[in-house]
């Protein structure tokens, strides 16, 4: 970073664009420095890295056949944790540990993919509404008001039931029901940016809308969207979990929520088989907590007004 900013001297051959990028990279460096000093944020990041690594190396640790009841016929059923089965077995003799490992993959995938969808829809709507304004803005904002008011879990349930159980449908459902919040924040940011001098200047110089959005608006809105996306992941993960628990999950790709549903229906509670339902719940809490801590820290760092609240 410093190398780049050192190179940028007045009168050098640097293009204005690279100057802007150097400035942004420096700003990102400052955010990262503040993030590193934030204890909660680093704790969250470490948890996230650990879970991500676990999800990635899962195929090396355990074979997918461990998820299949047919392949687990020889195993004891309802076995409590032991040397053979680190987290015990379920009613069909399947290893809970293997389910936990594979569940982390689905839960993370759904959380991150749904959030990307939320961000794409939300920022698109926000940028269009904020930048074009007028009746387009009023219609889009009215629509997002409506979506904010409709209780989104019932809506997600209905949609998921209509579309059928598959993780892609769940991702889609979460994406189309949760975008309004990101849209509102993006729009507010775009509106304030639009007033700022450099956009005025770019417009006066005859820049196209696409150029203004790409070069001036998006790079400036991006950090705030990132913070909000980090806070949207936990909501997406919790929604997936609830949908899966209500029987709307994808049985070929068991998530933590799905395995909680199976534990519940198999009667793990009355049997006191705590090893079946505790791990997945703790996994969900850890990931949700970690994303929330990182997101709140980012928001705090990017929005000086919030720093007071620490």
């Amino acid at each position: 970073m410093s190398e780049l900013s050192d190179v940028v001297v007045p009168g050098s051959a640097q293009s204005p664009r690279s100057v802007a990028w150097a400035r942004r990279r420096r700003a990102a460096g400052e955010v990262w420095a503040a993030f590193r000093r934030h204890r909660q944020a680093m704790a969250g990041l470490i948890i996230l890295l650990a879970v991500t690594v676990m999800a990635l190396v899962t195929p090396l640790l355990a074979d997918r056949t461990g998820l299949s009841a047919v392949d687990s016929l020889d195993n004891p059923v309802w076995a409590s944790p032991s040397g053979d089965f680190f987290l015990g077995t379920d009613n069909l003799g399947r290893s809970v540990a293997v389910q936990f490992l594979y569940g982390s993959r689905t839960s993370l995938l759904v959380g991150v993919a749904a959030t990307m969808l939320i961000v794409v829809i939300g920022s698109l709507v926000g940028v269009i509404a904020g930048f074009i304004g007028g009746w387009v803005d009023s219609i889009l904002m009215r629509l997002s008001d409506w979506f904010l008011v409709i209780p989104f879990l019932p809506l997600a349930i209905v949609l998921a039931r209509i579309l059928g159980p598959s993780i892609w449908n769940i991702i889609f459902v979460i994406g189309v029901t949760s975008w309004p919040y990101v849209a509102r924040i993006t729009r507010a940011q775009v509106l304030s940016l639009r007033q700022r001098l450099f956009v005025e200047r770019a417009r006066a110089l005859g820049a196209s809308r696409r150029h203004i959005v790409r070069q001036h608006i998006l790079p400036n809105v991006a950090p705030l969207i990132l913070a909000n996306a980090t806070l949207a992941v936990p909501i997406a993960i919790l929604t997936e979990t609830t949908l899966a628990f209500l029987g709307l999950g994808d049985s070929r790709n068991p998530s933590w929520g799905k395995s909680l549903e199976e534990a519940y229906t198999a009667g793990a509670i009355t049997r006191n088989a705590w090893w079946y339902y505790l791990p997945a719940g703790i996994g969900i809490i850890a990931v949700v907590l970690a994303f929330t801590m990182c997101g709140r820290a980012l928001e705090e760092i990017l929005d000086p007004r919030l720093r007071e609240r620490r």
Binding site: P234, L260, G281, I285, T292
Partner: peptide
Amino acid sequence: SMITYSMPDFWMAMVLLA
């Protein structure tokens, strides 16, 4: 608050029930 907020409601229901 952060921890209870992070818990799925139904999981809390299962644990409390047990």
